[in-house]
């Protein structure tokens, strides 16, 4: 296959450099857990989970132009499929991850097909995605099949096992697995954007009528993008369960999860390859910073000692500021400047 031009929508430059960048970043990050104290390691893993969710969301909503407010559906399907297979059937989380990705992709296809069949757009599409995620949450909460509101605890095993994706507390294993997953997600996004399907997807996002009139089936490429996006986000969910060893309907399907999938891309840059990663690096440590701040508050904030909420307030303020002042996000704005 020929590789014409550059990356569509990214100004036709810096294509292969991205692959190099992935390798370089990985090389730099691999020794990180060996030097970080355990508490910081947990933050680093959270950053990577954020990034994975954001990469998934960005594919569909940034590059595909279909604004999702219900990515919790895919995250939750990944989390629950992995947890159910492991707890009820003793299946390896890796298999669970694949199964979850397949199920999430199928669910994405279903939502997408219905939405596009009935020509839902803009706010209505966002509301529909939200409604589907909420429905899954309610079903999970009230279904004996998945333990109702109690959810699942991941059973502890002896020692550590990559196959069962379980490592002792403080082991760098979790970080390395998450890093590999994020690197894979960036690489998949990069490959997708360079492929014919990726170019068609961007064409449909930019102008659906024009793309159709050139022979591109908008429905087909929107569905493809949704399925891929759902699969990536579901992997984040599957990993989340293994790392925190617990899942319940709110943690998997709650509206907060959908918000957390949106934030990294919006902060970093919607519709850019690296935006979600940059956004995750900014967002991940926020709650630890505020928690530390409120555990030993300065004089002025002493009344707030031990209270929750400050971290989300910071997210929220950041979100508003970003949308109003830097709508292209941190990375997006920088990339734009560099191009001149």
């Amino acid at each position: 296959m020929t590789r014409p031009g550059g990356l569509p929508g990214l100004g036709g430059r810096g294509t292969r450099r991205n692959l190099l960048l992935i390798a370089l970043l990985c090389a730099v990050m691999i020794p990180l857990p060996l030097v970080l104290p355990p508490a910081q390691q947990a933050v680093a893993v959270r950053v990577l989970i954020f990034a994975l969710m954001g990469l998934g969301w960005n594919l569909m909503s940034g590059f595909g132009g279909m604004f999702s407010f219900g990515h919790a559906a895919y995250f939750g399907i990944g989390a629950y499929t992995g947890a159910w297979l492991l707890v009820e059937r003793g299946v390896s989380p890796w298999i669970g991850m694949l199964a979850g990705a397949a199920l999430a992709a199928a669910f994405g296809l279903l939502i997408g097909f219905l939405s596009f069949r009935y020509k839902l757009r803009g706010a209505y599409f966002a509301l529909a995605t939200f409604a589907f995620a909420e429905m899954l949450r309610l079903i999970a909460t009230n279904s004996d099949l998945v333990n109702r509101a109690q959810g699942y605890n991941v059973p502890l095993i002896q020692g550590s096992s990559l196959w069962m994706l379980q490592f002792p507390l403080g082991s760098p294993g979790y970080f390395w697995v998450a890093l590999a997953l994020v690197a894979a997600a960036v690489a998949v996004t990069w490959l997708f954007l360079r492929s014919r399907a990726g170019r068609f997807t961007i064409a449909v996002r930019d102008d659906e009528t024009a793309a159709e009139s050139l022979g591109v089936s908008a429905m087909r490429y929107k569905l493809l993008t949704m399925a891929l996006s759902a699969a990536i986000t579901s992997v984040a969910g599957a990993f989340y369960v293994q790392y925190y060893m617990f899942v319940d309907p709110d943690l998997a399907f709650g509206a907060n999860v959908s918000i957390q999938a949106i934030l990294p891309a919006v902060i970093g840059g919607v519709g850019t390859l690296w935006g979600p990663v940059v956004g995750a690096v900014v967002l991940g440590p926020l709650s630890d910073v505020t928690a530390t701040l409120l555990r030993n508050p300065p004089e002025a904030l002493s009344m707030l000692a031990g209270r929750a909420g400050l971290d989300v307030m910071l997210y929220a303020a950041l979100l508003i500021v970003m949308v109003l002042a830097l709508p292209k996000g941190l990375y997006g704005t920088l990339a734009e400047r560099r191009r001149g």
Binding site: I259, I262, V312, M313, Y315, V323
Partner: peptide
């Protein structure tokens, strides 16, 4: 939508 989402998170968490 994102701005109102931010406002809602701000109010609730305040």
């Amino acid at each position: 939508l994102l701005i109102t989402l931010g406002i809602s998170l701000l109010i609730e968490n305040a």
